[in-house]
Simulated scan of single mutants.
Amino acid sequence: MQLEQQETFRIEGPQLEVFGQVESKLPAPARKRPTAALALVVLAVVSVLGIGGAKLNTKYNQVRDIYSSANEHGQSMENDLSLRADAAANLIRLCGQALGEDAPSVQAAQQALDAWNATDADHPADQFAANTALGSAVEIMYNETVDAGKSTESIETQHAEFLSRQDIILRTAGNEYNPAAEEYNKTLSAFPANVMGALWGIGEVEAFQ
């Protein structure tokens, strides 16, 4: 039986530079034995990438926690977005009673809410876009209700909640989440974090913008 010809595997680029740096720190006897030296270098690099990858994964989770986990006040962006959607649903119901459920502005607001509910917290950028669209649709419906002289205390209360949640969401995004996401993404784009990220399957964090 004829054996297939083996492909030659070459190490080039940044990884080779890492091997060289590690090998230069080996004891002289090890450097004189190419096979043993290469084995030690590979072992050292694998160890470094493993530890570095674990740290990178921890950093990724810390950034995502700002979005999804409750802070000391029991709040999170994910929770505030959910409460804003609840306020939108209440407004759609109340304005629908005032304008009629078939009113175009009420129907448009409901469609925007359905689109928001179809998103998930794993994609903050999608949620930002859906939240923006929901805000525009609800404001058109609300203003139409006010202009028709049909606003009620309940509508005003839900509208105030709707706007208040948006202020909290944008403040958290601007002061905490987005800066942390940008810092993490900057780290991930540089060597050797980009190699670690590729090996561990860790990608960028989406900004809420």
Rank of each mutant, 00 (worst) to 15 (best):
S68D: 00
A121Q: 11
N194F: 04
H73T: 15
L94I: 02
T152M: 05
K25I: 02
S24Q: 12
G100T: 06
A198T: 10
S151W: 08
S136V: 01
P29I: 06
A103W: 01
E176H: 14
I140R: 05
Y177W: 03
Q75H: 05
Y67M: 10
A193R: 00
L56G: 06
Y177S: 14
A148V: 05
D80N: 00
Q97K: 13
L49A: 02
E153Q: 08
D126H: 06
E23C: 04
F9E: 10
G53Y: 09
A121R: 10
L113S: 03
A54L: 11
A98K: 12
Q21T: 11
S47Q: 01
T8W: 05
A30V: 15
G74K: 11
K150E: 12
N178H: 08
Q209K: 14
G203L: 10
G53N: 11
R64N: 02
R64K: 14
S189Y: 07
R93W: 05
V42L: 13
L163A: 06
T58Q: 13
R64A: 11
S69A: 10
Q2Y: 01
Q2K: 08
E17T: 13
T8G: 04
P27F: 12
I140A: 07
V42E: 04
R10S: 13
S76T: 05
N185D: 12
E7T: 15
Q2G: 00
A112K: 08
A190P: 02
Q6V: 13
Q62M: 09
K55F: 12
R33Q: 08
G96Y: 03
S151I: 12
Y177F: 15
N185C: 11
L26A: 05
A207H: 06
L3D: 07
N194Y: 05
N90Y: 01
R84S: 00
E176V: 05
D126G: 06
L26E: 04
A198Q: 11
S154G: 05
Q15G: 02
N117L: 13
T35Y: 12
A121E: 06
C95M: 10
R64F: 08
E182H: 06
Q209Y: 09
D120L: 03
E144F: 04
S154V: 05
A39D: 04
L199I: 03
A36K: 02
Q110F: 00
S164L: 08
A36F: 14
G13R: 03
A133H: 01
V46E: 07
A129M: 04
P14H: 13
S68T: 04
L43R: 09
T8V: 09
P192W: 10
S82N: 15
E78H: 13
Y67V: 02
E176S: 10
E176Y: 09
E204C: 01
E206A: 11
E7S: 12
E183T: 10
A30E: 14
G13Y: 07
V41L: 04
G135H: 00
N117G: 04
A173R: 09
D114W: 05
A130F: 00
A44W: 01
M1E: 11
E182M: 07
L16N: 11
Q209S: 14
S105K: 05
S24P: 01
H159F: 07
T187L: 14
S105Y: 00
I92D: 06
A37G: 15
A88F: 08
L16G: 04
R93M: 01
V45Y: 14
A44Q: 13
R93H: 00
P192I: 00
A109D: 06
